[in-house]
Amino acid sequence: MKFTKSILVAATAAMLSTGALAQDIAVIAGSVEDAFMDKIKKGVDDATHMVVANGGSVQYLRTQNYENFGPDLVTLINQAVAQGVDGIAIPVWVPDAQIPALQAAAGEGIKIMQYNSGLPVKDDIGALNYFGSDEYAAGFGGGKYLAEKGAKHILCHIQVPGAINLEERCRGVTDGATAAGAKVTVLNTPPNLDGDVTGTAEALKAEFIGDDSIDAMVSCADFGAAAGANAVEQTGANVMVSAFDFSPATLDRIKAGTQTMAIDQQPYLQGFLATSMLFAHLKFGTEISTDPVLTGPAIVDASNVDAVVAGAALGAR
């Protein structure tokens, strides 16, 4: 079904590309194994209907994994350029590697729309607009939320040491919590524990036991919340568990009360808006006067979890 649809799309694109009026855009995203990217894809897919209805085409390019991430992203940018697209929608995760490639693409007259990540370098790549969350603001909101819920000492967990956007999140958590009178400790777990729930749970357990003043934790990864909830279950420590982004299991935990909240950035909106607004700009010349457009932070907790579950069942939350 999807297969024939994509053939149709490709065929339409091939037919239209002979005319000068077709607007072809490429949307570049992260790993195919990353569930977060599936929600972005849902947004991109929904926007694609509108693009195709107006005679354009959308190509959705993803990396296989996050190793060698900078070069992989540049490869995808160059590939989109080689295929002669008119616009690229892309997050900036590895600025040093991506900026020159995006500047080169812009030099060939390709419009860039930025989403999800890299707000501080938006002007360097000359992006039309930005749809996403501000990592610092998201962290600030999360830190403030926990402190207002009574947390005095928050552990901020980074699963990929050196990732600038994650450090920015924890910086936000620190400032937000400090403003509300709480203290924050940052924990970097080694990269070989990335995605390893058992290993991370035991590492967090060691922290909870080592310092019993910790009464809340926020992980930059969704699996970190699964690990945190497990560490709490093991130690019986009175720690509020929370994380950036969420998976279906997160919603189960929030419902069950084993996780306090998740800091959402609404990836569906990012994919949907970046794709449709880029196309609308190319085709209709529209501009959005709000710049940047922030899709987060949106806190998911017990008060609104049921509405989110409904959206998650449809693949959009």
């Binding site: 296989q64 994994n65 996050y66 190793e67 060698n68 991430f69 900078g70 070069p71 540049v74 590895v94 040093d96 590697a97 020159p100 040491p161 050196g162 990269p191 070989n192």
Partner: peptide, 17 residues
């Protein structure tokens, strides 16, 4: 070559390579 081309270096697992 990659560090020079992409103006930066990052630590990665390299498992896939």
């Amino acid at each position: 070559c990659h560090a020079i081309l992409f103006n930066s270096a990052q630590v990665s697992g390299g498992m896939n390579d």
